[in-house]
Design a binder for these strands. Structure first.
Lengths: 104, 104
DNA sequence: TTACATTTGACCATTGAAGTACAAGTTTTA
DNA sequence: TAAAACTTGTACTTCAATGGTCAAATGTAA
C-alpha cells in the first residue's frame, strides 16, 4: 500500500527511480522493490522522502505505521475484529490514566 | 496487556508458574517475565496455553495479535488515528475485491 | 524457620528481517 | 533501434528481537 503511494508521489513529482535512489543513496533496485511492495521501505528513509515530496513527515510516518499493521493482520480471518480490540484497549487505557490523574 | 491476561487466567485456574512452565517446557523465569510484560510470549506457546486454560485457541491468538499491534503504535502521538486508517484500507480493499468478483 | 513461589539481572544463541548490491532481463520511450 | 527506465532473482551482511537459561535475591505463607 505504501509502495504504491510512494510511486504515485514520485510520478506526480515527475521523478524517476534513479533520482530517488540517488537522494536516499540506495540502489534503484531497492526503490523498485519498495514500489512493488516486495520490500518494506525503511523507516530511516521516511524523513528524506517527506522532504523530496514536500509533504509533512508526520503524514508519511503515519502511513508507514499503518502499512506495518496492515501487513501484520491482513491474513487473519477477522482483521477488523483485532483492530477493534486494540482500539478498546487504548481507549480503556486513556480512561484509566485520566482517573489516576483525578485521584491525585 | 496479554501478560496480565495470562496471569489472570493462570490464577483463576489455580495454577502456579511452575506448572505452566512445566507444560510449556520452559523456565519459570520466562513465565514470570511474560506475565510482567518484560518479554512477549512466543506464538508457538499459544495453542498449549489455550489447552491449559480451556479457552478457544482463536481467542488467544487474537489477543496475541492485538498485543503486537498495541506495542507497535502505543508510543505514537495519535494511535487511534493510525488504527482508523488501517481500518479504512481494509474496508476499501474488501469493496474492491467484491467489485472484481461482480465484474466476472 | 523452611519451603515454595516469584522476580530480577546478566547473559547468550538463534533467527528472521532489513538493507543492500549486482547482474541480467524486460519495458518503455524518444 | 538505441538508450533509459524499470524489474527481477540471487545472494550477502548486519542487526535487533526473540526466546530463552541460570543463579541469586526477594516475597510469602505455613
Amino acid at each position: 500500500m505504501l509502495g504504491l503511494k510512494l510511486r504515485e508521489l514520485r510520478e506526480s513529482n515527475g521523478l524517476v527511480q534513479r533520482q530517488i535512489a540517488a537522494q536516499l543513496e540506495v540502489d534503484t533496485a531497492y526503490i523498485s522493490k519498495v514500489e512493488n511492495e516486495e520490500k518494506p521501505i525503511s523507516k530511516i528513509h521516511i524523513s528524506k522522502l517527506a522532504q523530496i515530496f514536500k509533504i509533512p513527515e508526520k503524514e508519511l510516518l503515519k502511513m508507514w505505521l499503518a502499512d506495518k499493521i496492515y501487513e501484520l493482520i491482513i491474513d487473519e480471518e477477522n482483521p477488523l475484529d483485532v483492530l477493534k480490540s486494540v482500539q478498546r484497549q487504548i481507549v480503556q487505557n486513556t480512561i484509566n490514566q485520566d482517573n489516576k490523574k483525578m485521584a491525585i
